[in-house]
């Protein structure tokens, strides 16, 4: 297990470009680093139970043995410097990495006690339960209505047009976009502003009624006002959905999440209640990061 057998990696190198090898152990200044994850990674009755997860791109190991529980109807933030593997880890949770040929995932990843990477596991069904919102807004080149209705249509969630209308309306309302677009549902989704596009993508994701929504830096392409709107939305959504959000902004993590996980070069360093991570970090790497010494 890599968590038991610390590998020391030069801090300036990103994991994507470096293979872990015996030579790496020569660099010693972070020797105290990557042992067991500190804080409280495990909870009772988790939505996701992840154990010893390792991800490889070809020969390069991007995730080096992470164990973590994710609680139901909570928001958890993944933070960490660029290239620490947080997005890669996030994409494992609904198997979006499947489409990358060279990517391999090891370890045990369970959703409600069932293995995600089980051979018999249906990836379509999994993704219907675990939705995702991406870094850059990516509405389909279709009308606003068709964007939201896409998921329910392919999954056959509505029997009648009126049911579909209801789903679209509710999703747009939940995403806080209804008031702005209700008069122009037929206009193309690509014509909206960046923030509106991202909310449209969130509406599209929740239209399928997923149990979990993964968000990969959902605000990184948005201006501050649009960001504030999305953050508000995340807090509202957390009542009915489990939300996992990758973010570069520590303030955002502090504002929206119940728990925060700090990643460093493919290792999970510390997980705890958000206020604890930000007020009294237990690991010195976490502390360096949140006090802005690197990142």
């Amino acid at each position: 297990m890599n968590t038991m057998n610390p590998n020391i990696v030069n801090e300036t190198a990103t994991t994507e470009t470096r293979a872990v090898s015996a030579a790496d152990t020569d660099i010693s200044h972070a020797d105290n680093g990557y042992g067991e994850t500190v804080g409280k990674p495990f909870t009772d009755n988790p939505k996701f139970a992840l154990r010893d997860v390792e991800v490889y791109y070809g020969d390069t190991q991007a995730i080096k043995g992470i164990s973590l529980d994710i609680r139901k109807n909570q928001v958890i933030s993944f933070i960490g410097p660029s290239g620490c593997g947080k997005s890669t880890f996030l994409r494992c949770l609904n198997r979006m990495n499947d489409s990358i040929d060279s990517c391999r995932v090891k370890g045990r990843l369970e959703l409600d006690g069932q293995d995600i990477y089980d051979r018999k596991r249906d990836v379509v069904e999994l993704r219907a339960r675990v939705g995702m919102v991406f870094q850059k807004p990516n509405p389909f080149p279709k009308s606003i209505y068709d964007n939201v209705a896409y998921g329910p249509r392919i999954h056959g969630l509505a029997n009648r047009k009126s049911e579909l209308d209801d789903i679209v309306e509710n999703s747009l309302k939940k995403a806080g976009l209804w008031a702005e677009v209700k008069d122009r549902l037929d206009s193309p989704g690509t014509g909206l502003s960046g923030g509106q596009q991202q909310r449209l993508c969130i509406a599209r994701a929740i239209a399928v009624s997923p149990e979990v929504v993964l968000m990969d830096e959902p605000c990184s392409a948005l201006d501050p006002i649009a960001t504030a709107r999305i953050e508000e939305l995340i807090s509202e959504l957390s009542e009915s959905y489990t939300i996992i959000i990758v973010t570069h902004s520590m303030q955002q993590a502090a504002r929206v999440s119940h728990r925060t996980a700090y990643f460093h070069l493919g290792h999970l360093i510390e997980v705890n209640e958000t206020n604890k991570v930000f007020t009294s970090p237990q690991h010195e790497l976490t502390e360096s990061y949140i006090t802005g010494r690197f990142g």
């Binding site: 995702m132 990516n138 896409y150 392919i154 599209r204």
Partner: peptide, 8 residues
């Protein structure tokens, strides 16, 4: 990705 993530 957008479409696959919805379970298409």
């Amino acid at each position: 990705d957008g479409s696959l993530a919805l379970g298409a």
